[in-house]
């Protein structure tokens, strides 16, 4: 009975295990400590936080090839934590350190803009999650000694980053 159950469970889980593999190498260090993985909505890009010269730094790569993609604004303000990517990876949201404060920022990889997102009331983020379309941001904070999550609207600040193949439904696009 127990053997049959074990076989059943094994059969259930084995196909998943076969598809597991390590994240692609960044090319410069074999035993790289890597944390906080985040995938673009389409799964094409992988962001993670690595220790580089003793500083926690966000690394952006193509998932299939391992090719490292440049981040224009994020070579400083370490430590970085909690990266999050939009559908096609146009936006990378991450928590950085500026002076003695933690701050959420978004790098727009299309326009090379950096958007600092200071929290009302001078509060500081602990973790974040960017919606794949770039229109909402959820932040985990500490308030009155407990964890708290708040959701913010980015619709006026960021353009949509839709999935590949999905057309933007604008009035102009709707005109035949």
């Amino acid at each position: 009975m127990a053997a049959a159950l074990a076989v059943g469970l094994g059969a259930c889980s084995l196909p998943w295990a076969r598809r597991s593999r390590p994240a692609p190498s960044a090319g410069w260090e074999a035993n790289l400590s890597r944390q906080d993985p985040a995938l673009s909505g389409d799964g094409r890009l992988l962001a993670s936080v690595i220790e580089r010269q003793g500083r926690s730094t966000v690394l952006l790569q193509e998932r299939s090839s391992g090719r490292v993609l440049p981040l224009r604004h994020l070579s400083r303000w370490q430590p970085h934590s909690s990266p999050s990517l939009s559908w096609r990876g146009r936006y990378l949201a991450v928590i950085v350190q500026r002076g003695d404060r933690r701050l959420a920022v978004i790098e727009d990889r299309l326009t090379n803009r950096l958007l600092p997102l200071p929290l009302p009331g001078g509060r500081e983020p602990v973790r974040l999650s960017l919606a794949p379309d770039g229109q909402r941001l959820a932040l985990q904070l500490v308030a009155s000694g407990r964890w708290r999550v708040e959701v913010f609207d980015l619709a006026g600040a960021l353009e949509l980053d839709p999935p590949a193949g999905e057309l933007l439904r604008t009035p102009a696009a709707a005109t035949p």
């Binding site: 950096l114 958007l115 009302p120 708040e150 609207d153 600040a157």
Partner: peptide, 14 residues
């Protein structure tokens, strides 16, 4: 290139 964007909370959800 680096202008702070005030965050607008979504009060109903929050």
């Amino acid at each position: 290139a680096c202008v702070a964007t005030p965050l607008r909370p979504l009060p109903t959800i929050n």
